[in-house]
Design a binder for these strands. Sequence first.
DNA 1: CGTATCGTTGACTCTCGTCAATGGCAGTGG
DNA 2: CCACTGCCATTGACGAGAGTCAACGATACG
Lengths: 256, 256
Amino acid sequence: MSETALHHELSRLNFLADDDFEMLDELLSRRHTLAAGDLMVMDGDPMEQTTVVLDGWAFRFKDFPDGRRQIFNFLLPGDIVGMFALMFGNARCGVEALTALEVAAFPSARLVPVFQNCPRLALALSWLAGQDERLLHEQITRVGSRAATERMAHLFIELYLRLLRVGVDEEAARRLPLTQVMLAETLGMSHVHANRCFRELVRAGAAEARNSHVWLLDPDFLAKRGGFDAGYLEQQEVPQRTRNVAADHDVGSNCT
Amino acid sequence: MSETALHHELSRLNFLADDDFEMLDELLSRRHTLAAGDLMVMDGDPMEQTTVVLDGWAFRFKDFPDGRRQIFNFLLPGDIVGMFALMFGNARCGVEALTALEVAAFPSARLVPVFQNCPRLALALSWLAGQDERLLHEQITRVGSRAATERMAHLFIELYLRLLRVGVDEEAARRLPLTQVMLAETLGMSHVHANRCFRELVRAGAAEARNSHVWLLDPDFLAKRGGFDAGYLEQQEVPQRTRNVAADHDVGSNCT
DNA sequence: CGTATCGTTGACTCTCGTCAATGGCAGTGG
DNA sequence: CCACTGCCATTGACGAGAGTCAACGATACG
């Protein structure tokens, strides 16, 4: 099914009960698809929907008057957009579909009863939203304190591991739908320099560009070249104390 | 009172009822103080506490084996640390007190009943936590697509406006407890270059360094020099639809 | 068959990092 | 009271990394 990515990730937490998943399925029942290039969120628009990526890639970005664009991060299957949209007036950045995209969307207001009645699910969703913060920290580190080629290799491995984590198979996880211009806009360098760095990785036999995609040929090399420390992506167990708390506040059949 | 900053910010939302504030006061009743240099969170430690900064400065950072350090952002009065700590095993970055600090801390687990019984307060706290994301986006933009001196001026104005926003008076908001080494670690440049950029601002009469502090002399100039667009910091109204939702789910006296 | 996006390369320039040295200032212990 | 130490700020010199400009080939698309 198309929700495998999210289910895959949440199942691995080994934290949710069956009725949590039922509630989740209901939340995600309204599906639609977008074409590559469609805007999921336009900068400045009011935010009312919470969206979950089911399949495909998207990215968050901000365009500036002088033509520059900064890409903040990439949204992969299982990622949530606008978790707390309810409290924010207007979006301050855009979200664009990078590939054809399948998503589920629901009014953010529907999260309020979820928080009241399904504490486990609420915690799990907050956890997903919180993952994002770590990725942003890593992005700051990449751009702020790594050399250009290192940045690029590091980003490749991050995406590769994130894809593996949500259940994409090894083969597919090595194919990233990124152009060199987008790499430049993500990594804070000129597209010319992005090309020079990329060529270096190509010469090392670690990657290649075909068909407006990046193909990772040697993840081990890239991880080393990017000084990649997998710590921040490691799957973590839900602490026992959290399980206890969730159980204490379980309101059972209210959930669905 | 010491909680003025947080109250100030939440009051301006014009969203919480009296019993929300009562609940909040209870959450924040366990106070303590830290000295400058104390670690609030150590990288790798288990996270169980949610902490609110009441007075003083702190910062989030990550140290690397080779001695580099990246500072992600600064925590000012009213900011929350570890909102969703409940779901995360261990911290992946440190938080250090930059000045003497007054904080309130409570076990993250206490948020679960808050979410169940005080939807408005839960939304307001989530909103605070979500503010952080915008600041991280802005930090990425600074480091990724601005020139060095621009970055520095931009950061100064962001901090200045954030301080004003939480009720610090004009005079005090112009004094930032930052050394040039910290600026360098925040902005992704060498400390030598940080000094060069800073000197440029000093020569322009826009700032000066005294006593391990930065003093902002000409915010207007700095805002212009940093290409600062205040949009992302603007106070936003809570949308009417959100008020309605909160009212619908109000469970009244359960809150306290 | 034109047009646009993507990728690539060379040449030139300049921002920025590195290395090194110095001075001021505060704390500390003899 | 004064060496001693450490942190902070500052500056010059040098070189490397990265931006800019410009041009061109390849591929996809209508």
